[in-house]
Simulated assay, not measured.
Amino acid sequence: MLDTDFFRRWMTAAAASVDREAEHLTALDSPIGDADHGSNLQRGFRAVTAVLEEEAPGTPGAVLMLAGRRLVSTVGGASGPLYGTLLRRAGKALGDSGEVSAEQLAEALRTGVEAVRALGGAAPGDKTMIDALVPAVDALRDSFAAARTAAEEGALATTPLRARKGRASYLGERSIGHQDPGATSAALLVGALAEAAGE
């Protein structure tokens, strides 16, 4: 079973991953976006780490809902609302339980991903974070490590795609050949989940 400490470890690991990869995320964002994806997420996840220490939420769902709210309030552009929606909806789906199973987490994240799809109007193949999140949630029923691999492969697979949603879609054919920064940061979030699980 996964307790509140597990979810705090997940958010802490995610913040550390974003810190490490911030320059890479911004470099990916530079040719097809606003060149601020890394710095925006870095600011947001640092704020998440700080608020989790201040407020010490008592359940897994409360950890995710607090983290999601903080991302919405501190991350600029589309990333804040999208990641905030993912975590808040997943947290709400987990309810007030003090411990949850990996299966419950997978279903909660599926709920979160569906909310992100509804908010952004994106589907798999549109060259967005959805391309990493959908395969990751599907693979989560096998293991956290499988989810990480699926997310990383999904992010890499965005490179040859033409963007159909988000800022990159304005570039049309010129978006082809660039790995999507949102899918890449989504893979970091899933990788941090596997790290928190020790896989």
Rank of each mutant, 00 (worst) to 15 (best):
L105T: 03
E107C: 13
R89H: 15
P81F: 03
L109Q: 07
G125L: 06
R167D: 13
A27V: 12
G38P: 02
R162F: 12
R8M: 09
L82M: 15
T111A: 15
G112L: 03
L105N: 06
E55F: 11
E21N: 11
M11I: 02
V63K: 00
K127H: 01
R46T: 10
A150F: 09
A62C: 10
P60W: 00
L193E: 02
D19H: 11
G80Q: 04
D96K: 14
L188N: 04
A194R: 04
A163L: 09
M129P: 02
L140Q: 08
R9K: 02
A118Q: 15
E53L: 09
T26I: 08
L82V: 13
L66A: 08
Q179C: 10
I130M: 10
G121H: 01
Y170A: 14
D3H: 06
K92H: 15
V113H: 01
R167K: 15
W10G: 02
D96H: 14
F7L: 06
P31F: 05
R20V: 15
P160E: 00
G58C: 07
A194V: 06
A56H: 13
A145R: 12
F6N: 01
G172Y: 10
V113G: 02
G44F: 04
A186V: 08
V72Y: 08
T149L: 14
P181R: 03
E23F: 13
V75I: 12
I32H: 02
T158W: 01
A78H: 06
S97I: 10
T74L: 11
L188S: 05
A168T: 08
L105F: 07
T184I: 07
D142I: 15
A150L: 12
T159Q: 08
A122M: 06
A168K: 03
R167S: 14
A157Y: 09
A192V: 00
A15T: 05
A187H: 06
I130A: 07
H37E: 09
G112N: 06
H37T: 08
A22E: 08
R89D: 12
V72I: 15
L87C: 10
D29C: 09
S101H: 13
A168F: 05
L189N: 09
R141A: 15
I176D: 05
R117H: 07
T128C: 00
A196H: 02
R162V: 15
A157G: 13
D3G: 13
S79N: 10
R174F: 12
